[in-house]
Amino acid sequence: MSKRIEVKDLNVYYGKFKAVEDVSLTIEPRTVTAFIGPSGCGKSTFLRTLNRMHEVIPGARVEGEVMIDGKNLYDADVDPVMVRRQVGMVFQRPNPFPTMSIADNVLAGVKLNNAKISKSDAEHLVEKSLKGANLWKEVKDRLNLPGSGLSGGQQQRLCIARAIAVSPEVILMDEPCSALDPISTLAIEDLIEELKAKYTIVIVTHNMQQASRVSDKTAFFNIAGTGEPGKLIEFDDTTTIFENPHVQATEDYISGRFG
């Protein structure tokens, strides 16, 4: 269910602007990897290249390789649509489909590609996914009501349920808690801890305590200045990054001296 991600010499461009330069790192299966760094350092952009979601932005392109289980995502014969079914994504702002019920939101990805699913299988999958996202108890009596009626934290867990319903191998999370209150944040963090048993998780966060709480490995990104590309400064075990970083810039950032 989970795969190793190997990134080799990846550059990301928006048109002529180089947004991310020369990133190489390896993400092990069933781990949580956190990307930290100041705003605009390219961490979200880089995250999106792991499921080719950056292609949604006109003019965005990459150079380099992203290998998932030995297969390059950017090979000519790879369909980005298929990549995204393997590599799920949770966004900064909770985005359940407002026109769908809670149950339909969970099933949204499963019903793609004209896939047919029997009613009992669908009910089973909804329950399993919502349980997997720690949301089942709160919504089991209102599965047919709109997902937009839930609280922000519940909506975000609904989005996680929607992502895991298609059984992806990797889940990318782009600042999943930045729009949530501390209690909801805690619920999501607990959930990430549980999901780690099955999935490879990559999370972008601005909250360094969060990175140190949830992740096994941490990557620190930084930019030299406006208009310069973002770079991977240091990538190591989370404890090393937060207690004994090798690069001065990392230490400055995590100790709050800039950023």
């Binding site: 949604v56 489909f97 990805g109």
Partner: peptide, 11 residues
Amino acid sequence: LHEEAALALGA
């Protein structure tokens, strides 16, 4: 956000 939600699911 909704368009990206759909695309990220593999639509």
